[in-house]
Amino acid sequence: MTTLLRGCGTALVTPFTPDGALDEPALRALVDWQIAQGMHMLIPCGSTGEAVTLTPAEHLRVVEITVEQVNGRVPVIAGAGSNDTRKAIALSRDLRSIGATHLLHVTPMYNKPPQRALVAHFRAIADACDLPIVIYNVPGRTAINLEARTCLELAADPRFVAVKEASGNMAQIGTIIRDRPGHFAVLSGDDGLTLPVMALGGEGVISVVSNIAPALMVQLCDAMAREDLQAARALEVQVAPLIDAAFVESNPIPAKAMLAMMGRLSDTLRLPLVPLAETHRTAVRTVLERLGAIPS
């Protein structure tokens, strides 16, 4: 029986060198720092990890490095999504072979499949690869919403162990939390909804801002898990300006800018993404200074 996924998981950025190559030492250091800060799970090669601009070999290498550095300490939920089911299956099998513990599968983007086709897509992947699957619902990026009834239909199958819910629809999220089976975790896909999703009974968050402030997000999830709402509210007040800063432009543009300011990696992205606009940099730096993440 797969252990229920709980707490905070970081949707890892993918560090690149200034000339655009994969920065393996920076990735290893980022993974080690995340675990040292108490992170409960790590998610390489999602949208925050710029997976769509990685070559197939780079995608496997990022997951391989993450698995090596984690060395069994926390789950590694590897991004394996594609809008071609055959490609998603092939990638899932490759990620299983290099040690991922779970797979993250996003709803197919651009094709706009109906709900019954989403069920067929996810079930075909589960049939082809025996790793537990986390479903990722992010209609803002994919142009398709995984409806509550569809999510619950999949959740009845024990091969699907969680949903990363980034629809922002609290009524939908609440329905899934209320009606899901006991093996199925509900994780917020929005940093700013971590507290309300967990207050409804969700298990945690897959976070962008935990790239930058891992301990704060871990503490927030831990406070909610022990039902210490007063402590959680205080932590939410601390982290709220960082959440605002992290989404001032498309993710992961601000996150990489902040990590570069912290000296953890180069502020390098791959087109069509570009570095943070200069007009935002002073405000973003001020947020980091106030958090104590960089000297003021």
Score class of each variant (00 low, 15 high):
P18W: 11
M109R: 01
D191C: 03
E227M: 05
I243C: 00
F122W: 02
A234C: 09
M261I: 03
A11R: 06
K164E: 06
S188K: 04
E289D: 10
I177C: 00
S207C: 03
P75C: 07
A148D: 06
W33P: 11
Q238F: 02
M217W: 02
M170L: 12
R178C: 07
T268Q: 13
A232N: 00
E24I: 13
A36F: 11
S97E: 15
G49R: 05
L216S: 10
V62Q: 03
V287N: 06
Q37S: 12
P15G: 04
L187C: 03
A90D: 13
A232G: 10
I173E: 00
L269M: 09
A246V: 07
G140N: 06
R96Y: 03
P75R: 00
T282A: 15
L131R: 02
Q34I: 01
L60A: 15
R61N: 15
P275H: 03
C8E: 08
L131D: 01
P252R: 02
G168S: 07
P275A: 08
M224V: 03
K164M: 04
E203N: 00
D267L: 01
I294V: 13
M39E: 12
V138C: 05
I177W: 03
T55V: 11
D222F: 02
R290F: 07
M41F: 11
Q219R: 15
D179W: 09
I212C: 02
A213D: 10
A255I: 01
D244T: 14
A246C: 12
K112N: 13
R28N: 03
T85L: 09
E249N: 10
Q37C: 01
A171I: 15
